[in-house]
């Protein structure tokens, strides 16, 4: 999971989907709270990618 910090503007939609994985910080952009993902996280991560208003998220296989 990669967050393009130049593109992210901190909408936090990703945090709304998985608050245990994403968090908008005081700097106004999203950060990863973990780098460890399981196959069960996949659909939520894909949803976060697709619902990001600035297309700042990328999921590598």
């Amino acid at each position: 999971m990669h967050i393009d910090t130049d593109v992210c503007t901190g909408h936090g939609v990703c945090e709304g989907i998985r608050p245990d994985i994403f968090e908008v910080g005081d700097d106004g952009i999203a950060h990863l709270l973990t780098e460890e993902f399981t196959e069960e996280d996949r659909q939520d991560l894909e949803d976060a990618v697709d619902q990001c208003p600035t297309q700042a998220l990328r999921l590598e296989r």
Binding site: G10, H11, G12, E15, G16, V24, D26, G28
Partner: peptide
């Protein structure tokens, strides 16, 4: 108020 708004979105949900 970027940080607070999404926390509230979760609470409302």
């Amino acid at each position: 108020q970027r940080r607070a708004v999404m926390k509230l979105r979760q609470m409302i949900g």
